[in-house]
Structure formats: C-alpha cells, structure tokens
Simulated scan of single mutants.
Amino acid sequence: MIKRIVTAILLAPTFVVAQASGPLTVELNKLESGEGSGCRAYFLFRNQTGMSFEALEISLALLGGDGVIERLVTVDASPLPAARTTLKLFEFPETDCKGLSEILLHEIGSCKPQNRDEADCFELIELDSKAAVPLVK
C-alpha cells in the first residue's frame, strides 16, 4: 500500500506533462531600451497544452556580451489561459538591452495548471526568439 502511494506521488508531475496536447511556447518577441538604464522585454506565451495555468513563475539569467551572467530575474507569467497567446511585458532595471548576448531559462519556480497540483513543467516549455538575443534552456 505504501509503495503504491509513494509511486503515485513520484509520478504526479509526469502525469500532468503526459496529458498535455502540445507545448507551451515562450517567445522573446522584442527587446527595447526602457526608461533610464532599463530594458523592456516583450514575451509571447503560446499555450497549446490544453490546460490553463494559474501560476507560472520563471527565473531567467541575463548574460552580457562576454557570456557572463549580469543578473537573475524572476518573472510571473500567470495566468495563462488554454489555447491562447498572451503578451507579457517585463522590465529589467539597470540592464542594457544592447549588451545582452543571451537569455537563459534558468529554472521554473512555480508551475500550477488550473485545478491541478503543482507540476514540473520544464519539458512542456519550448523556447523561441524573434529578438536579436536568443532565448535558450
């Protein structure tokens, strides 16, 4: 009995991912200089998973031209309705957009599909960039 419960707990996040009908594409669409010394990043979240997300918090590492991490930022992309593309604008203070060489998806702090338990959504996420700076895993 205990073995079954432990197995069910260990497989719960995988079950959510297995139910997804498509990816959650995170696209860096545009970067532009913000007020002062900041950088504005426009992201499109294309949710083709068949699930709405009530929580999605991701950590991004911003790498400078020399490949060294300039800063870590955490952004909250929720909510994300199913079968929709959602535009989110994030401000990165004290960051020069032109000085960025790459943005790395460092980790997913929170991923909770609506009416389901917290899950590991890393495998659901596909990355794309229309900006001159690549978005990578």
Rank of each mutant, 00 (worst) to 15 (best):
M1L: 11
M1P: 07
M1H: 12
I2Q: 14
I5C: 05
I5W: 09
V6W: 07
V17S: 00
V17N: 04
A18Y: 09
A18Q: 06
P23D: 13
T25C: 03
T25S: 09
V26E: 10
L28Q: 06
L28S: 03
L31W: 09
L31Q: 05
E32W: 14
C39H: 03
C39W: 06
R40F: 15
A41I: 07
A41H: 05
L44A: 13
F45I: 15
Q48S: 13
M51V: 00
S52T: 09
F53G: 01
F53M: 08
E54P: 00
A55V: 03
I58L: 13
I58K: 06
I58E: 10
S59F: 02
A61S: 09
L63W: 03
G64Q: 10
V68Y: 02
V68H: 03
E70A: 01
R71L: 02
R71A: 12
L72N: 15
L72K: 11
T74K: 11
V75R: 09
D76G: 03
A77R: 05
S78T: 00
L80T: 00
P81G: 08
A82F: 05
A82Q: 11
A82I: 02
A82L: 00
A82M: 03
A82E: 11
A83S: 15
R84S: 11
T85L: 05
F92Q: 06
P93W: 05
T95E: 08
C97Q: 10
K98F: 04
K98Q: 14
L100W: 10
L100K: 05
S101F: 03
S101K: 12
E102H: 05
I103Y: 05
L105K: 04
L105S: 00
H106R: 14
I108P: 06
I108T: 09
G109S: 11
G109N: 13
G109E: 11
G109Y: 04
S110K: 15
S110Y: 07
C111F: 10
P113C: 06
P113T: 02
N115M: 11
N115F: 15
N115S: 13
R116Q: 12
D117G: 10
F122M: 13
F122T: 11
E123I: 08
E123A: 15
L124M: 12
I125C: 06
L127H: 10
D128W: 13
S129T: 10
S129M: 10
A131D: 15
L135A: 10
L135C: 06
V136I: 15
K137Y: 14
K137L: 12
